[in-house]
Amino acid sequence: MSTPILEIRNLKKYYKVGPNKKNDLKAVDDVSFTVHKGEIFGIVGESGCGKSTMGKSILRLIEPTEGEVILNGEDLVKLDSAEMREKRKDIQIIFQDPFASLNPRMKVFKIIEEPLINFKIGTKEERRKRVIEVAKQVGLTENHLQRFPHEFSGGQRQRIGIARAIVTNPKVIIADEPVSALDVSIQSQVLNIMKDLNENLGITFIFISHDLNVVHHFCDKIGVMYLGKLVEIAEKNELFNNAKHPYTKALLSALPKSHPKEVKQRTVLKGDVPSPSNPPTGCTFHPRCPNAMESCKTSVPKLSNYNTEHKVSCLLYETVEVVK
């Protein structure tokens, strides 16, 4: 296994809500995981489960309430604003909306060049060559660089966003639902660009999505998130073939059949997702869980090893001995 490049330890992001701001809305609640160098780590879950908030908290675009974000042995949470600004060269983001994330008054060349100027990287000529280089890496031409964002399609605008993210040679990129706003035919093109960047440049990705098929195709390892917590982490094939958490099983059962003769048993979850400002006691999934036991109402399960590469947060498996 390669060296861990990013370690998330007990990350929390709480918002004060309610009368007199006394209640905590637990958007991200005690999340821990490790990403290895060159790995593509997927995060999946229903809308509102805290995926994007977690991604932005890792980058400190939103300040975490508690926890550690260890990038190459250094805790980003402890850095002051000037030190964190310098570290942003190494950890970048691709936003979900490829239009809203681009300045409509700037030409594409300036949009891609701006991080180089901010970090005082290279001379004017060196920056020009670097912008042209990354533009070609994402499938843009020099002619594209002199246009404005509104002159491009959604897929082309996302290519611009990717070029801006990689121009500083980052070690880690957080991709926040980068293909969800694109047509299916364009999604594959953008994913292939990101896959090439991962393989050729060794860029590590945290890939946030609600689309299990996309995550299965693109990611190496997957974490499943529910109500601000990670409930299962496993290699992608292990997760799809041997899911353990009832929530993961329900998500997988909702996938369309891959073949007309395939037999699938659909697990329909009862009720709605509880509010993160007033989560259930014990296991937060127990009101909707088809396997809920009486102990689930009072005991909080921990994310622990089912086997060496598979972690699950469920009382059904807490008696399983850790495989070393």
Rank of each mutant, 00 (worst) to 15 (best):
L102R: 00
P149M: 14
V167G: 00
A165C: 12
E151W: 12
E83C: 09
L182G: 08
I193T: 15
R105S: 07
D97H: 02
R105V: 05
R128T: 09
K129S: 11
I186A: 00
R147W: 12
Q92H: 08
F207P: 12
V167P: 03
I206M: 02
S180K: 14
L79K: 06
R164W: 07
I173W: 00
M194C: 01
F205T: 04
N143W: 07
G202M: 08
I203D: 00
I112N: 01
L79D: 11
F152L: 11
S81A: 10
H216G: 02
D183L: 02
P178G: 05
N169V: 10
T168S: 13
S209A: 15
M84L: 15
R147L: 05
V215F: 11
V134M: 12
F95C: 11
P98D: 04
C219W: 01
E114Y: 04
I203N: 00
V108T: 07
I203C: 02
S185C: 12
E126W: 06
N169I: 01
D176W: 09
L79M: 14
G155E: 10
M106K: 15
S188C: 07
T204E: 04
F119E: 10
E86Y: 01
Q158H: 03
V131P: 00
Q96E: 06
T141H: 01
N103M: 12
S188T: 13
I160L: 05
P170I: 08
K89E: 12
D196I: 14
S188R: 07
V184M: 09
L182R: 03
I112A: 01
R159F: 05
F148N: 06
I112F: 03
F152G: 07
T204L: 11
H150E: 06
Q156E: 06
I93A: 06
K120H: 15
I174C: 02
I193P: 09
R128S: 09
Q92L: 07
M194T: 09
N143R: 13
V172P: 13
I162E: 00
R127M: 02
G202R: 08
